[in-house]
Design a binder for these strands. Structure first.
Lengths: 245, 245
DNA sequence: CAACAATGTTGCATGATACGCAACTCGATT
DNA sequence: AATCGAGTTGCGTATCATGCAACATTGTTG
């Protein structure tokens, strides 16, 4: 492990977590190094465009360079190419925003989406990391890909599953029924449905699903919406060479 | 400048430029270091999620962490929030995809877009870096923000401006008329129109424009489309507090 | 307005770490 | 089975990252 490089990356991680711009002294405290060391690390990151210094406040924020790298990452995901028409189709038939996520960094990383034309919509942007235990996409990834070693059951709404045993039983059910639901467990007023996406090796590599306001994604029309999500997930899995369906 | 950190960032830059995955030996040659040094740098980047190693081929690619950072950068751009409704409006009235770009890394960095429902469309993804001398957005940024110290006039089509003096005269005209056109200068069959976006300090901070197939964005309907782009740019500038319009 | 405090930058000596070398592992090739 | 190339690991050493001090800049206080 190269300590100086690790410190630079920790700076980027801190900036990703931060609410606003950060000054040298705060970086020095966070990294437990002298302020002169922190200053040199930030200068290096800035010269490559990974951070920017506000000339007025002298504080730092993430730089635009990562936007370019991210575009490259997303453009090199064959799964995204294959999945995009299925996301559009899923949004067309359900009228809700659809999303595609993979397990990454201990969370559900949204890598694509398709927006509904509806004015009232539930949309999660590409690049978002969502918790696994209380989102539909997340629970699918937990059930079918595996549970990361550290899983914190942070409560988000009164409906969030809060203990490990209840979650375990619930994930058994998700595996049996082949889909997951987020019934206002992550965000009040929002309900989601998701199903697993298999690759040619019959392994689950992603989850696909829809999100909508609870007033539209009601418990009454859930069976129909569920069927549409599962059908799309199976179609996409077939497209990826999975012989399971 | 911290050498180890700089090397790590150069690795990320190399991976951004690369066509495919890269092995340790190639990194070592590129950085002019021993293969064991390259290996340790890559291990550090991998442990923070900035690169991934393919377990089968042992070669590396950019990791998903940058997707999260990028999302954060884009979400913290007030300009994007303000501009999005204007992009939608511009697409609605013109029927073409609209884009928003800023000057970054010596190029035009696309930070937002709005897609036309048309099946035939010209769309540039967020995170794309486009050349300045032969795109409409790029020429607006050159004319109104400034010319970077190094500007390479790479030819892309027979219509690309190839010498500095012709470009200089052309940019004078762009400044006078208040908009720029890409008349199949970057991609054959594609025509674009862009105009500058001013902030409250009366400085140009971005360019906004539309792109379409040359068969639809014809020289005949250019005057109307041009007016719609300029009007939207002025509306957005006014929204950002510019007193110029 | 002067004094003070906090933040940030730069020069420099020093020792901790990054580096290169050698040895090893592993998979592909002959 | 032997060889080769790529990648990893152990280790000694030299280079560079680090902290300290001094300085510069900006904001705050009396």
């Amino acid at each position: 492990m190269i300590q100086s490089l690790a410190r630079g990356l920790e700076i980027l991680d801190l900036l990703e977590q931060a609410e606003g711009d950060i000054g040298i002294m705060e970086f020095a405290r966070y990294l437990d190094v002298d302020k002169s060391s922190a200053s040199r690390l930030l200068q290096t990151l800035a010269s490559y465009g990974y951070v920017e210094q506000n000339p007025d406040t002298r504080r730092f924020r993430l730089g635009p360079r990562v936007v370019v790298l991210s575009n490259r990452v997303l453009n090199r995901m064959p799964l995204r190419d294959h999945a995009h028409p299925f996301l559009r189709q899923l949004t067309d038939v359900t009228g809700e925003c659809s999303h595609l996520a993979i397990l990454s960094q201990g969370k559900a990383l949204y890598i694509d989406q398709y927006q509904t034309p509806s004015i009232l919509r539930v949309e999660t942007e590409i690049g978002t990391l969502s918790p696994l235990h209380c989102t539909a996409l997340g629970k699918v990834l937990l059930a079918f890909v595996g549970v990361p070693s550290e899983l914190t059951l942070t409560p988000y709404t009164p409906r969030t599953i809060g203990d490990a045993e209840t979650l375990r039983v619930h994930l058994d059910q998700v595996r049996r029924q082949g889909f997951a639901i987020d019934d206002e467990e992550h965000v009040a007023g929002v309900r989601c449905i998701a199903a697993p996406v298999y690759n040619f090796g019959k392994k689950v590599i992603a989850a696909i699903g829809i999100s909508g306001p609870a007033g539209r994604v009601t418990l009454d029309n859930l069976p129909l919406l569920k069927q549409q999500v599962i059908a799309t997930a199976e179609d996409l899995s077939r497209r990826l060479g999975s012989g399971l369906f």
